[in-house]
Design a protein around this nucleic acid. Structure first.
Lengths: 221, 221
DNA sequence: CCGCGCCCGTGAAATAATTCACTAGCTCGT
DNA sequence: ACGAGCTAGTGAATTATTTCACGGGCGCGG
């Protein structure tokens, strides 16, 4: 099978996982790796890995497995990580500041090129080595800044307005940390990271475990 | 159908979404709401909402819909959000600090009771209104701190060790911000928030859109 | 107090994602 | 250069999740 139709969303997320694993393996000097080995490294069953990769082509050799370097570079290409991606962060609060300084971005194709806020006390100040700019100038500034990815780190009430500005400024992918749904035109990709939802789901699971233990001890009697 | 079997994971995540919506609706003074209305508020089709709720019981009245207050309190109960949850954050770096100050936690059942780090320069200093403690004392300190939820905000290399400490300290749910898989014993719930994976998936989608546009203009010629 | 319209709950159908299980091909050791 | 032992790729089967569509109850207006 070749580039073909489209891979399911969970597959894409796992590709990123495989990449992380492969980078480490390459660093450790591994030459080749089988789907089973890769799987045990990153917690995915081997068939899943093979299926995931099969959406994009054939990468392995029967009897041997995958060449680490080759798979690494092919996946990097597929995920578009072989080119620089310029990122604008909107919101210079706690979260925005933390993201701007996120260590995971060093040694990655992501480069923070702009940080924006609407708070006059913050505008003009430096965050790490980038000046905080007025969010109202986003479209104008992005003419030359050319960020393709926007990260929303503002309160929920402002998220939609910021999303609109980002789209207007030419951004084609948005990572939304605000606990709020945002609407964007087709052709713009969006992903949400919702801390509250994650924690609330955890609470549910804690409750379930507690229930099961009660049921268990009830059964004992 | 009553408490019955178990709801699918995506349903749980949506319940949290419904809750957020309902809190707003209650604040706005809404009395009742239909699944269709709730759906348009939070971007979910009505059948999905009814199915999700049906895993937990019957909450609505034909002809009317759901009573906002009642559904709100029932879901709050189901998600275990009617009780305080004590949270420990491990890692007092950028991210840990941002999470500790996260505005979404005010007016929520989540209370940050402890922040831990292994850096001697940070230990003893205050973050917001909590003292940063030595991560090595986690188990000891949690005897009386009694945090049930742990948030991991340390570098990937340290994540597993921190997870082990958290479990040892009696934590029963972990939210992991480190880009690294962690193993925990059964009965401990884990969720991951992986910034890099999210952004990398966005990059893939950007590439797809670009391809489609090329294909489109090729077809024009 | 009757009938029309609305809306929930839910099996059944459709769709999506994962896992199985088998074929074919490569490597390595003898 | 041959056979034993792995291992990739993949259709088919399975499992999970979403969506459909309909039965029946409830409220409201006349």
């Amino acid at each position: 099978m070749q580039p073909s139709g489209k891979a399911p969303e969970p597959t894409l997320s796992r590709l990123s996982l495989y990449l992380r694993c492969l980078r480490q393996l390459a660093k450790d000097g591994a030459k080749t790796i089988s789907s089973a080995q890769l799987g045990s490294h990153c917690g995915v069953v081997s068939a899943q890995i093979r299926k995931d990769l099969s959406y994009f082509g054939e990468f392995g050799k029967p009897g041997t497995g995958y060449e680490v370097q080759q798979l690494l570079s092919r996946l990097t290409e597929i995920m578009q990580l072989d080119q620089e991606h310029r990122v604008a962060i909107i919101g210079a609060g706690n979260l925005g500041a933390a993201l701007a300084g996120y260590a995971g971005f060093s040694d990655s194709p992501f480069r923070i090129v702009g940080i924006f806020d609407n708070n006059f006390n913050k505008i003009g100040r430096m965050l790490w080595d980038v000046e905080i700019l007025d969010v109202h100038r986003l479209t104008e500034v992005n003419q030359h800044m050319r960020a393709g990815i926007g990260i929303i780190a503002v309160p929920a009430e402002a998220a939609q307005e910021v999303a609109d500005r980002l789209v207007d400024a030419g951004v084609r992918a948005i990572l939304n940390f605000a606990p709020s749904r945002i609407e964007v035109p087709p052709g713009v990709a969006v992903r949400h990271v919702d801390l509250t939802r994650e924690i609330e789901v955890l609470c549910y699971h804690m409750g379930r475990v507690a229930e099961e233990q009660e049921a268990l001890s009830d059964a004992d009697e």
